[in-house]
Amino acid sequence: MDWEALRLSLRLAALTTLTLVALGLPLAHWLAFTRWRWKFLVEAVVALPLVLPPTVLGFYLLVAMGPRSPFGRLWVSAFGHALPFSFEGLLIASVLYSLPFTVQPFAAAFTAVDRGLLEASWCLGASRLRTFFRVVVPLSWAGLLTGMVLSFAHTLGEFGVVLMVGGDLPGRTRTASIAVFDQVQALDYAAAGRTALLLLGVSFGVLALTYGLRHARRLPWPLS
């Protein structure tokens, strides 16, 4: 059993989700409430990872992170090592690859909040930021939870981008999904079966828990 790969997968998924929450909240809020006419272009960019082959995204990321790009050079001079084939590089790739899985449910949930409630909050003197945390977030919790879980599960299951950007370095970039591939290549079907079953179990468990929680909370105000 490749516990190291699973631990790496979980760590990557958790950090990716955390980063995406920090990035996704403001981005989704902006998308949900802006009246900017070119907003649809941003929406299209956010949705790109849904349709782009992971290899294409991985290729561009590899080039962008490489030592010949300004960003790559900056990173090396700041941190002393190159981004490609490192855990940090993998994290950046995962964040971009899972962006729509966070931002779309977040934005949909924010859009569903009645605008009248926001105006009521402003008229009661609450700033936009306070309104966001006191009204928008509590009323969007189901969508926020969905976005976080989808990002987490999606990161657990990603393969193409990881292979392109991270390679297959045990303990650094070899995630569980890559491990399955390796084990099959090595004709170790028993090990591949165990890893695959474990990934299946974790993914199903996380999703079932979320949907169960949503279902339970959809009932009107339990015990209040």
Binding site: E119, A120, C123, G125, R134, L139
Partner: peptide, 28 residues
């Protein structure tokens, strides 16, 4: 609106559905 010292009551009331009566009253 935050800088106008107004009380605004919309047609649909727009009470905060996730807050109880006391919290709605205390919101401002």
């Amino acid at each position: 609106p935050q800088a106008r010292r107004i009380g605004f009551l919309s047609q649909g009331y727009d009470l905060f559905p996730h807050l109880d009566v006391a919290a709605n009253l205390a919101y401002g």
